[in-house]
Amino acid sequence: MSVLLRCEGITKRYTNVVALDNLDLTVESGKIIGLLGPNGSGKTTLIKLINGLLQANSGSITVCGNKPGVESKKVVSYLPDNNFLNSWMTVEQIVNMFADFYEDFRKDLAYEMLSRLAIEPTCKLKTLSKGNKEKVSLILVMSRNARLYVLDEPIAGVDPATRDYIISTIINNYNPEASVIISTHLISDIEEVLDEVIFIKQGRLVLQKSVDEIREENGKSVDALFREVFKW
């Protein structure tokens, strides 16, 4: 097991809010990790920092030993929580674009997953249903042979069938060399898939523990514990 992600003393301030407050975090390989916290707790900020979409005010982040930059971007596969794909492009064009830029992109795997969903490569993204768009995004992200997958709210606002599809896709692509970070506030849907959960609250790390340990020690689900920790 090697350390994939290391955050040391990360602080990120926006004009008048502190989004992350001296956060320390380590993520090892071979794990599926839930990044849990209520809205505004700093989950997305942390994810953006990991992906180099924001810069921290202080502290350091390394992915496989590299600061966010070209080298880290080669090994991080990121699913944002919005429609980040160009809607006029066809599925095929997007696949080609990913294959062009990411050396670790497995085109055959992407097409295999797409054909199982009966999504035509010639379809324009804007003609796809919301559920299918989410699936295409996930397929693109999971078709990479990355070290760290960062999925921001992948199961928010999708129907149960899509949610199950997303979960089984994540499990199916599990690889002991890599880790998957899934941010969500819908814990009960996915807690059994997780090795470990990270609770963050107001930009601080509250807890990082394995799901089974939590259940063992508290005699309750992670979801129930979450509700307790984040009770106002």
């Binding site: 089984s168 499990i171 199916n172 059994e192 898939v193």
Partner: peptide
């Protein structure tokens, strides 16, 4: 392991 994990919807390491 993977098949059980997918079928049960749980973590492969578990």
């Amino acid at each position: 392991v993977r098949e059980v994990a997918v079928a049960a919807g749980v973590n492969p390491n578990t």
